[in-house]
Structures are given as structure tokens and as C-alpha cells.
Amino acid sequence: MWKRYAAVLPANPWNWIAVWRRNYMAWKKAAIASILGNLAEPVTSLFGLGFGLGAMVGRVDGIPYVAFLATGMVATSAMISATFETIHATFARMHAKRTWESALCTQLTLGDIVLGELAWAASKALLAGTAMMLVAATMGYASWPSVLFALPVIALTGFAFASLAMIVTALAPGYDYFIFYQTLFLTPMLFLSGAVFPVTELPDIFQKLSHLLPLAHSIELIRPAMLDRPGGSVALHISALCIFAVMPFFLSVGLLRRRLMS
């Protein structure tokens, strides 16, 4: 059993790049539309929510509400982008489009393919998060150069959420099942992680729960970096995100082996 699992793990540290490049090649053809979409989304959500709610709310945690929301949305957009890439596009490549099937006939292992897909989803998350950050920067909510620290965190956030979504992809019989993941996992996380209002507003038990959520850790890193405010427990937050990136990866490879290679 373990021997068989070991045989499908990534074969070397670079095999995944071929899978990433395949996805990049396909994406490149519609890159402009993708980038415009990535920019349009934050503009609408920040203007709509930020100014509308911002006028009523005023300041939160000692900063304007728009700044609070924008920094939360950077992490959220990375989460959403990585998740949707994995449960929709990756699922299609695994399932209907047979892209994985041809890759599995080569010297790539299943682990190489999964890793390449996760890296690709993380790249798209980085793109979406950076777009959100650029919009926030034009509004004056990105401090130079501390904002640069947010970039690797966005990529790590993307990787962690892609990795979590890969478990769902491995288990879902079809697209219809992804709705459970969105409504029961992602949406609650959005409200429990301090993306749209401070965690301190929550009842005590939910505040404790938020320590277990990857999005909360991501926001705790990105918000101080963007606004150049002191952030605490950096090592803890990064470690938490790393755990969410790594553990689900190994679990999903095992689940996908059972699904595709039995």
C-alpha cells in the first residue's frame, strides 16, 4: 500500500513544471480577458462595498473601512481564484478533458501532475491577489515597500486553497458537488476570518475557531504588510498556511490515486 503510494508521489522537484507550462500555454491565449477580469472584479467590489459601507461604518481597527476591506479582499480573491481554478478547470482537465490521462502515460507521476496543477492555481491566485492589491494601491492603501511582503503570502494562500480544493476535486463525482464546498466552507470562512469585519466582533467561540482557518492567517499577514502596520506571530501564520498547503496535497494525491489508478 505505502509502496504504491510512494510510486505516485512527485518523482523529482522539477517534473511539475511541464504541467504548469501546459496550463500557462492554454491561459496565454485568453490572457487579456483574464487580466481584465481580475482587475474589474476588485474595482467593482471595492467601490461598491467599500464606499457604500465605508460611509456608514467609518473607521475599523483604527483604519478607514475601505482600507480594511481592501486588504481583506486581497487574501479573499487569492482564495477564490485558487479554489475555482481547482474545482472547475482542474476538475475538467482530470475528468472530462482527459488532459491528465495523457500526462499519466508519460514519465510524470500523479503527484507531479497534482503539484503542477496546484502551482498553476497558486499562480492564478497571485495574479488575482496582485490585481486587487494594485487597485488598493491606486486608492492609497498599499505602503511601499512593505507591500512586497504580501506577494509571497498571496501565492502561499493560493497554494493552500488549491491544495484544500484538490481534496474536493478528488472526491467529487461531478460539478454539482462543489456547491457544498462553497456554501459550507468558503462562505463561512469569509465571515469568520476578518476579511469584511474584524474577528474581535465575533462571539468568543468563533474567534477561537478563526485560528483554525487558513484565510484568517493569510489576512493576518497581508493586512499589516499592505498598511505597514506591526503584525504579530508571523512565523505562526506562515507555518499554518504551509500546513494547509502541504497536508491536503499529500491527502489528495492518495485520494486521486484511488480514483484514477485503481
Binding site: 522539477w14 517534473n15 513544471i17 511541464a18 504541467v19 507550462r21 501546459r22 500555454m25 492554454a26 491565449k29 478533458k97 482527459r98 488532459t99 490521462e101 495523457s102 500526462a103 502515460c105 508519460t106 514519465q107 510524470l108
Partner: peptide, 21 residues
């Protein structure tokens, strides 16, 4: 056939060749 419908003939060979490192 597991060819990639998103790509041209040449691109299919390129992508597949990269899978072999």
C-alpha cells in the same frame, strides 16, 4: 484520443514532449 483540443498540432507535440522532461 487524449489530444489537447485547445492546442495546435505542433503545440500538442510540444506539451507532450515536455511531459517527458
Amino acid at each position: 484520443d487524449t489530444l489537447d483540443p485547445e492546442f495546435t498540432v505542433r503545440q500538442n507535440l510540444l506539451v507532450f514532449g515536455r511531459y517527458f522532461g
